Structure formats: C-alpha cells, structure tokens
Computed example of a mutant assay.
Amino acid sequence: MTTKTIRRELKFTQSPAVVWRALATSEALADWMYPNDFEPRVGHRFTFRVPPDPRAQFDGLVVHCEVLRCAPPSELEFTWVVGEGWLDTRVRYRLEADGDGTRVLFEHSGFKEDQAFHGAEYGWKMMHGKLAKALEKASDNPALKA
C-alpha cells in the first residue's frame, strides 16, 4: 500500500531560535496549534487535544504523540497517532537559517487514508497560518522570547 506525505516549505522573518521556540514549547504550541503537554525531549509521550467544532459536526479528538528527534534549533520529529491505529503518522520540522530569517521544511508522512490526508492538508494549512501570525507577534509573546 502506498502512503502519502504532506510537504511544505515555510519561510519566516524570525530567527531559527525564535521559530524553534514556537515549535518546541508547550505554551507556544498551544497558541497556534492545540492544548498539549509537550516537552522537547526524545522519548517524551504527549498529547494534543483538538477541541470539538459543532458547526462541522466534529466531536474533537486526542492526538497521541512521542518525540522521536529533538535537535534544537534545527530538527523536531514526533509521531501523530489518532485512535486505535486509525492514523499512525509522523510529523517532522527541519529549520534552516535563511538570511536573517528561517526556512522551515515540514513533512507529515504515513497517510494510508485519503480522507485523513486531505483533512490533515487543510488542518496544517490553517495551523501554519496561525503559526505565521504568532511569529509576527513574537515580540509580544513571552513564550517566544529568549
């Protein structure tokens, strides 16, 4: 069976250190993604709690994750598991300095179901838009300051 992968290249004007904090601190992740109990250490198991959306007839869900790689400020990889193996995928961020800013290579791999793949494409587009807005306001956010 062939699996599908979502790939995106994101560019931010903030330094890799600031972008890293947005990706690798629980408080910052909660600002642009979902409530969580993330810790930036390999082997840490954590969850994202996706809230319900009654307008979309969505009851919410819990995403179970485990940090597989954490190499500040350049690489973060974790599992992304929903249900009893219904969705068992991996998320990876790789950060590279790009002038004064940061180039981020994003990958979410391992999709077997088209519905899950298309839903995740939509979800990541929304979340990465929120990430960009959070980074634009980085100077106002204590979680993103050094």
Results as ranks from 00 to 15, higher is better:
Ser74Met: 02
Ser26Leu: 08
Val18Trp: 07
Ala24Lys: 06
Pro52Ala: 15
Ser15Cys: 07
Glu84Ile: 04
Val104Ile: 10
Glu84Leu: 10
Asp140Ser: 13
Trp124Lys: 08
Phe111Cys: 03
Pro51Ile: 13
Gly60Ser: 09
Phe117Ser: 02
Met126Cys: 13
Glu121Thr: 05
Ala17Glu: 15
Thr25Gln: 11
Leu61Thr: 08
Gly85Ser: 06
Thr13Val: 13
Asp98Arg: 07
Pro40Asp: 02
Lys133Val: 15
Lys125Asn: 13
Phe38Ser: 01
Thr47Val: 14
Phe117Leu: 07
Ser109Thr: 05
Pro16Tyr: 12
Met127Tyr: 07
Leu135Thr: 04
His108Thr: 04
Pro142Met: 00
Leu87Arg: 08
Pro142Val: 03
Val82Tyr: 02
Gly83Lys: 04
Glu77Trp: 02
Phe48Ile: 07
Phe58Met: 15
Thr25Asn: 07
Asn141Lys: 11
Ser74Trp: 01
Thr47Cys: 13
Pro35Ser: 05
Phe78Pro: 03
Ala71Tyr: 00
Leu105Ser: 12
Val81Arg: 14
Asp114Arg: 08
Asp140Gly: 08
Leu29Gln: 10
Arg21Glu: 04
Pro52Thr: 13
Arg49Ala: 09
Glu66Cys: 14
Asp98Lys: 03
Gly101Val: 08
Ser109Gln: 05
Leu76His: 00
Met127Ala: 15
Val19Pro: 01
Asp100Val: 12
Ala116His: 09
Ala56Lys: 14
Leu131Gln: 12
Ser15Ala: 14
Glu39Met: 10
Thr79Asn: 01
Cys70Pro: 05
Glu121Ala: 08
Trp32Ser: 04
Glu77Leu: 08
Leu76Asn: 00
Phe106Val: 05
Gly43Glu: 00
Ala132Arg: 15
Asp37Pro: 06
His108Ser: 02
Asp88Ala: 15
Val18Thr: 13
Lys133Phe: 14
Pro52Met: 14
Glu113Cys: 07
Val67Pro: 06
Glu75Thr: 11
Glu136Met: 08
Ala17Lys: 12
Glu96Trp: 06
Arg69Ser: 10
Phe48His: 11
Pro51Glu: 14
Tyr122Glu: 13
Pro72Gln: 04
Trp20Met: 13
Ala22His: 05
Ala134Ile: 12
Glu121Val: 11
Ala97Val: 08
Asp140Tyr: 10
Arg41Thr: 03
Arg103Thr: 06
Glu96Arg: 15
Pro51Lys: 15
Asp98Gln: 11
Leu87Glu: 06
Ala56Arg: 14
Lys133Thr: 14
Phe12Gly: 10
Arg92Ala: 05
Phe48Gly: 07
Pro72Phe: 03
Cys70Ala: 10
Cys70Trp: 00
Leu76Cys: 02
Ala116Asn: 04
Phe38His: 00
Asp31Glu: 10
Asp31His: 07
Leu144Arg: 00
Pro52Glu: 13
Arg92Trp: 00
Ala116Asp: 06
Arg69Lys: 12
Gly101Pro: 04
Gly83Met: 06
Arg41Gln: 09
Thr79Glu: 04
